[in-house]
Design a protein around this nucleic acid. Structure first.
Length: 376
DNA sequence: AATCTAATCAACCGCCTTACG
DNA sequence: TCGTAAGGCGGTTGATTAGAT
């Protein structure tokens, strides 16, 4: 048994719409709106199913549609958005006024895909086809697979001038705010895992977790502590960062050793010692939280997130934390929020929105950029 | 001119999500 | 909490058109 058809199709017309049908639908919707698509065909005198009417209206008859060939800038925007959103055509379409998801999908399949292939770029991964070997060490200086987002300025352009990509090298990933840094470094210099102590393995697993989470889109890239502490050095950054920051810093570095998050009853404070990178791949993990319920509440509410205006960051752990919250989506005000929504998958019902899909390496970097820019 | 092939895009299909009783 | 209906989405189909032979 298959699924029941969306409506009784006996006697209903299929195939291309006639001008007369179009006119009936337009007239009806302009006069009455469409409270219920299923009722529309009956009321409009059409022998079509409601679904068909909706499709015809949204993809073809809507008065706000922009017909005609997509411009170069629209095409570029589609490529950029696709790099971050994948085949989420409706999401992509929402960034192109007057264009429909169907139109963009068709355009992608018939034009852009071929164009990218001709350019030697995989239209799925947006990476060079010759560099398709998975490389977990994607930030290493040796890596040639640093992702390029078409149409976007090179990701490095977003980075603050003194932010060297090399520190993101897996080997240099350190447990944030943890005094096992030395052990970690020493351990990572050894290749044979059997040589590692339990503590070292633990540190290594943290790094593994960071890498895994980054590649699977469920966490954040571990921020090298040394670099994180150096954010103050980035003051006076490149103008391109204004693209994200809008010159309205949300975060301020001060001397506080605590991460402070506004709570319904005041200000929640998280001391460094409870922020354990071991759990960083799952930001909702209870071990990461001083008060799991409260923090989860903070993070799960879109509206409430908006009220988190000025977390105060000074340590790597705090910055890491802030970064996580920033990329959950709502911390950036419009228009940054809309930009961020184009970069991050948004599901406001998710306890940790923005982490619900495959997030690519460059997403992580752009998040870092958003995050960094928010400091200026 | 006829035929074949490729390209295009409107429309359909079926699954998933959401709203509601 | 569950079931159902409706809307929405992404993949696919197929009719039409354009270009090549």
């Amino acid at each position: 048994m298959g699924r029941q058809p969306c409506c009784d199709k006996v006697g209903l017309k299929k195939g291309p719409w006639t001008a007369e049908e179009d006119q009936k639908l337009i007239t009806f919707i302009l006069n009455n709106g469409h409270c219920c698509w299923r009722a529309v065909p009956k009321l409009a005198g059409l022998l079509r199913c409601g679904k068909s009417c909706r499709l015809r209206w949204t993809n073809y008859l809507r008065p706000d549609l922009k017909r005609g060939v997509l411009s170069d800038s629209e095409e570029q925007l589609i490529i950029d958005l696709h790099a971050h959103l994948g085949n989420r055509w409706s999401k992509i379409a929402s960034h192109l006024p007057g264009r429909t998801d169907n139109e963009i999908k068709n355009y992608w399949n018939t034009h852009i895909k071929k164009k990218l292939k001709r350019m030697g770029i995989d239209p799925v991964t947006h990476r060079s086809i010759s560099d398709q070997v998975p490389d977990m060490n994607y930030h290493s200086a040796e890596s040639k697979t640093f992702p390029t987002v078409l149409g976007m300025p090179n990701t490095e352009d977003y980075l603050a001038p003194k932010l060297d990509l090399n520190p993101y090298n897996k080997k240099e990933m350190v447990r944030i705010n943890n005094n096992n840094d030395d052990a970690a470094k020493e351990a990572s210099s050894r290749s044979n895992e059997s040589e590692l102590t339990e503590e070292e393995k633990s540190v290594d697993s943290v790094k593994e977790a960071g890498q895994l989470s980054a590649s699977e889109g469920y966490g954040v890239e571990l921020l090298p502590a040394a670099e994180a502490h150096n954010f103050e050095n980035f003051v006076g950054t490149s103008p391109s960062l204004d693209f994200f920051s809008g010159n309205s810093p949300l975060f301020h570095q001060q001397g506080s050793p605590l991460l402070r998050v506004p709570d319904e009853e005041g200000l929640l404070e998280f001391s460094n010692d409870i922020i354990d990178c071991a759990n960083i791949q799952d930001p909702t993990s209870s071990e990461l939280m001083k008060d799991e319920y409260t923090v989860n509440s903070c993070l799960s509410s879109f509206d409430y997130n908006r009220e988190i205006q000025t977390p105060i960051c000074s340590t790597a752990a705090e910055i890491q934390w802030t970064q996580e919250m920033l990329v959950t989506e709502s911390l950036l005000p419009t228009p940054e929020t809309s930009m961020q929504e184009s970069l991050w998958q948004h599901d406001s019902d998710d306890a940790f929105p923005g982490w619900d899909g495959d997030i690519l390496d460059h997403d992580i970097n752009i998040a870092n950029c958003c995050f960094s820019s928010a400091f200026y």
